[in-house]
Structure formats: C-alpha cells, structure tokens
C-alpha cells in the first residue's frame, strides 16, 4: 500500500486540471503500443481508486448503471472472463456473456455480423478474446461500441499487462529503472508482448529470457516496430539482480512443432526455482499471468512461496478492468 501512496503523491498531473483534459484519448483498448505514459499513469491512478472499492464490505458503486457490457470469447478462459464480469458488476453495469460454442457462431456467423448483432442489442462495451491476432482491431473499425481486447492470438493482452504493472507498483516505488525479467515462451505470449510495450514506455529495464526457439528473432536489435529489450538464453544471468521475475505459461498446446526437445528438458533449464531466485534482488517479487503449469515453468514452492504475488495479480485484475470500463464509459457512444 505504501508504495502506491508515494507514487500518487508525486504524480502532479492529477492536481492540474489543464493537464487532465488532454490525457485520455482512447475509445478502445486494443494494445498498449499507442498508449502514452500519461495515459498509463491515469489508468494506474484510477485503478488505485477502484482497488479501494474492492476492500469495502459492499463492493459496488453505481457508476455504470444502464451501460451494457458483452463478453465475446472465442477462446477458453476462466479468470480473465470472470474478472471482466466481476469488474462490470462492481460498477453496476449490465453484463451478458456470449459463449461462442453455443451461439450462432457455430452456424457460421462472421465476427463482424456477431458484433453488429451485439451492438443492435445495445452493447456499449464489447470485451473480446479471439485466437487471431488483430481480430479486435478489425472489430473496432466496424462498430460503434468500445472494444476491449482480452487477448488476441500471439499479439496482445493489454489488460493483463496493466494489471501486472499495477501489481509491481504495489511493491515498488516506480517502474522507471525497475529490472524486470520475463522468462519462458516469449514468442507465443501475448502477455509478454503487451508487457514489453507498457514497461519500456514507463522506463523499465526489461530482460527477456528463454530458449532461442521461443524468442522472436531480432528482439535485441533496435528496430522501428518494437521496443528494445535485453535478450538472453541464460536464466541465471537473467535473474541476477532482478526486481521482478515474471514467468509465462509454457503453452503446451503450441509445442507440437518441435520447438523444444522435451518439456522435461525445458523444466530443467528454464524453471524458476528457489535456488535461481536467490540471485535476484532480495525484495524480488514473482509474477505469473496464470494458469500455472506447476513444476514446469515455475517450481510449485515458488508459486506458493512468500515472494509470489500471483494471487494478488488476480485481485488487481478486477480493479484494472473496473478502471478501464470507467475510462471508456465517458462519451463512448457520442462519436
């Protein structure tokens, strides 16, 4: 709690009404590459206010009464979907969950047609997860509702990256110069991609680590389309002195194509263990977007150990999503 308080007090922008006017410029949340540091700051600050609501006995405010949120998930999800659902309910929005397997999508309805139907039914905000990268972007060009990307293919998972950043701020004073190490299946991880955008924008020192087959080529070279990060295949080097160690789910369903010799070999070389963590900063926190493959990418004792903030990430996820709903609700239908 202390860390966030300090962070808020140094943030002058909120006290200055002139600056407030220009800060928020989003009708959709597609990825974090087009967010400014000031916008990320605004999300963090709003999240803090929402987090306070979650600590109340009655976790409900009337802010989004009369607004309708629809979740449209073309991929399996438990925590992300319930997190969005609870966030909407805490703000008194009406929510409808469209389960693709039991909808007209199975009869061959196209994505755009489904969205137009949702809009005709009065959806103000559509939360969407899709296996194809870029699907939410396409959707945002066809409908008036606000689209929130809840994960698209290998591309982006912006709400996860924002909740990760909020969790870091609960323990660390600032993101600037924070040493963040992301370990595992980088290439398939939309979580890693969105985190790299948001963390580098806020000045973190990001290292990615994994077997070379699971790291996109050219990540260590400065390039115009992606921020620069440090890359290593040596996990001990990656963890040394780190303030934050983030594990990623080894996407077992995506390992058919021979990228890894075996899961066991991966676990031996890249598992986040107590021993490896002992080389990190003494106040290191360990994060994971879940669901966890225990004893594959991360040791069970670490998941449940005292450095782990994994369950806290889940709670913070609700607060972040409440903040985003709030920020999208103002004037979203007036354009």
């Amino acid at each position: 709690m202390e860390a966030v308080k300090q962070y808020k007090e140094t943030d002058m922008q909120a006290e200055n009404p002139q600056l407030e006017q220009k800060v928020w410029n989003h009708r959709h949340i597609l990825d974090l590459d087009d967010f400014t540091p000031a916008e990320i700051d605004l999300v963090m600050q709003t999240t803090d206010a929402m987090h306070e609501i979650l600590s109340r006995p009655i976790k409900k405010v009337p802010t989004l009464r009369g607004k309708t949120v629809v979740t449209l998930f073309y991929e399996a999800s438990t925590r992300t979907r319930s997190s969005f659902e609870l966030a909407a309910k805490n703000l008194s929005a009406d929510i409808s969950n469209l389960t693709v397997s039991s909808s007209s999508v199975t009869k061959g309805e196209s994505l755009i047609d489904t969205l137009e139907t949702m809009e005709a039914l009065g959806a103000d905000i559509v939360v969407m997860r899709h296996p194809c990268s870029g699907a939410p972007n396409l959707a945002s060009k066809h409908v008036k509702s606000s689209i929130i990307n809840a994960g698209d293919g290998w591309h982006a998972h912006p709400t996860q990256a924002l909740l990760d950043m909020y969790t870091m701020l609960k323990y660390k004073n600032s993101i600037k110069n924070l040493k963040v190490t992301i370990i595992g299946d980088i290439i398939h991880s939309r979580v890693a991609h969105s985190n790299i955008w948001s963390l580098t924008k806020m000045g973190a020192d990001v290292t990615i680590c994994g077997p070379s087959t699971l790291i996109p080529k050219g990540m260590d070279n400065p390039q115009p389309y992606f921020p620069k990060v440090k890359v290593t295949t040596d996990i001990d080097k990656a963890i040394k002195g780190a303030d934050v160690v983030m594990g990623l789910r080894l996407q077992l369903e995506r390992q058919q194509s021979g990228l890894l010799p075996s899961i066991r070999e991966y676990a031996k070389l890249y598992q986040i263990t107590e021993e490896r963590l002992s080389k990190a900063d003494k106040n290191v926190i360990v994060m994971h977007p879940g669901p966890v493959n225990e004893d594959i990418e991360i040791a069970s004792s670490v998941v449940h150990g005292e450095k782990s903030v994994i369950t806290e990430q889940v709670t913070n996820g609700v607060a972040v999503r409440m903040a985003l709903f709030y920020l999208l609700a103002g004037g979203s239908r007036n354009e």
Binding site: E20, A49, E52, T63, G331
Partner: peptide, 23 residues
C-alpha cells in the same frame, strides 16, 4: 471522499474525470 463514481454526469462527459481513492 472521492465521489466521482457517484456523479450523475459521467456518460455525458467526453473526457473522464480523474478519480482517486476514498480514505
């Protein structure tokens, strides 16, 4: 007290108000 979440003009604003914690 931050009462922004209880305002009656939230959706008529183009730019969201900055909200802070109630303490």
């Amino acid at each position: 007290l931050d009462f922004s979440l209880y305002r009656d003009d939230i959706s008529s604003r183009d730019i969201p108000l900055v909200i802070k914690s109630t303490d």
